[in-house]
Design a protein around this nucleic acid. Structure first.
Lengths: 246, 246
DNA sequence: GTCAATACTTTGTCCTGACAAACTCACATG
DNA sequence: CATGTGAGTTTGTCAGGACAAAGTATTGAC
């Protein structure tokens, strides 16, 4: 087996042992030193060789199983099924996605007001009709071209962003910075034709196909953070996601 | 605390103890007997009261944490964040989705041939251009109306379905029955306008917006099972998904 | 040679015990 | 009154052991 696995683990590190083990295994698999289909050493030997207990090894392997890199079969062993980390869909904002894919997002804030919550957002946010919320309308550019028209409703108690913040950062970044970490979300992805106003704003032809996404996000305490209703130029954008069952 | 949690666990059952505990907790939370925001009993007391060890309780709680129902904080405790099970996106077929939402799917097999793999599918399936595959074109109805036009490419070694099977079952069911369990998939969701042929088949107007989804699925051993390229009537269908970070 | 019983390997479940780290809150101190 | 110190609570990590269940390979009977 590869040399990395022989190196001693750092017991003085704040990084948990199971995570150190998982990271090493992951690196070996990503570099192809343990090929797809190959079996890794059994848990008991691995534990002994690395000088940790079997539960620690199991936890490390479990971590990689959940990421879709490994699968285990009782009586058989643990096999590599995929060399890349297949992250489940992430709870990220378009802004972060664009940045991490090397593009340069720019945001134009079209509207920023406090107003009674629109009907569709009220249901999603689980708040009374008539309650005031911050209502935001933004136009997101990537590579100099308009990409998406975004509408958000945010409860007043959660965040009161200003135009400058919104122009320079993603909404999720602002939420996180305010101590509201999005943890859970439900999304609906659909499609429809652009209205003439939308077509004009997005520099598309009238009736062009748009990808729609609406999302409600909650924090760890179960409080609603935001409702968003966005349209994307289907000619420039699509959603990509990986799934795994375990 | 609610009475269900007091009932004795069944140690003779093949259902693991941690799962029995998780199921009970889940039921209590879903019925609202432990409200959102409420803290559940700490692990050590819970373990003692149910007569199991703390690792078993931890595993049960972990299971619900991963499903987005509970969150834990060191030094604080474990809280209910959402009363419904938030399943992560599932690796299921449209057919199964329709059945489980109480609709009655019907499938019309438009084409079923063995032919050289189309270029787009070759890349997704990671096979040589020119290799022969089973090529399927299906029209899926729900509630008497056409809903989706589906194209699939399947390696010959994986499955050789016949028309009758395809008309009566979902593709994923056939795959599973043949011993090929889909475990990992990558999907792209986008949108575009219908061609006139598509519009005719789906009884939409020409140029109507369609939701597109292409997917590649692998089994546990990392073998490619299928590539699918589907279009859905955006007026009748959208994708719904829940996400959580943990 | 075929097929069933058996031994072996490997992961799955569960236990007890221990200490560490993060958080809360009361209390003493300036 | 503000502040930080320390005790108490709760989850996080880790050890080591035991047996069960599922699969694989070998062996033996017919």
């Amino acid at each position: 087996m590869a040399p990395e696995l022989h190196a001693r683990l750092d017991r003085s590190s704040p990084v948990p042992l199971y995570f150190q083990v998982a990271s090493r295994l992951q690196a070996l698999i990503e570099r192809g030193e343990i090929g797809v289909g190959a079996r890794i050493e059994n848990e008991i030997d691995l534990a002994e060789r690395l000088g940790v207990s079997r539960p620690t090894i199991r936890r490390a392997i479990q971590y990689l199983v959940e990421r879709g890199m490994l699968i285990r079969k009782r009586g058989v062993g643990t096999q590599v099924v995929h060399p890349k980390v297949r992250r489940p869909v992430e709870l990220s904002s378009l802004y972060d996605d664009l940045v991490s894919s090397g593009r340069t997002p720019r945001t134009e804030v079209l509207q920023l007001t406090v107003m009674p919550v629109p009907a569709q957002a009220a249901a999603a946010l689980e708040i009374e009709l008539g309650t005031e919320v911050t209502w935001i309308e933004r136009l997101r550019y990537a590579g100099g071209e308009p990409l998406a028209l975004m509408h958000n409703a945010i409860p007043l108690g959660v965040l009161r962003p200003d135009r400058a913040d919104l122009a320079e950062h993603g909404l999720y970044e602002l939420l996180r910075r305010a101590g509201h970490v999005p943890r859970i979300a439900t999304q609906m992805i659909g499609a429809r034709s652009a209205t003439s106003a939308e077509a004009r704003t997005l520099t598309e032809k009238r009736g062009a196909s748009l990808l729609t996404m609406s999302r409600t996000a909650w924090d760890a305490a179960g409080h609603v953070l935001e409702y968003g209703s966005h349209v994307y130029r289907a000619s420039r954008y699509s959603f990509e996601l990986s799934l795994s069952t375990h």
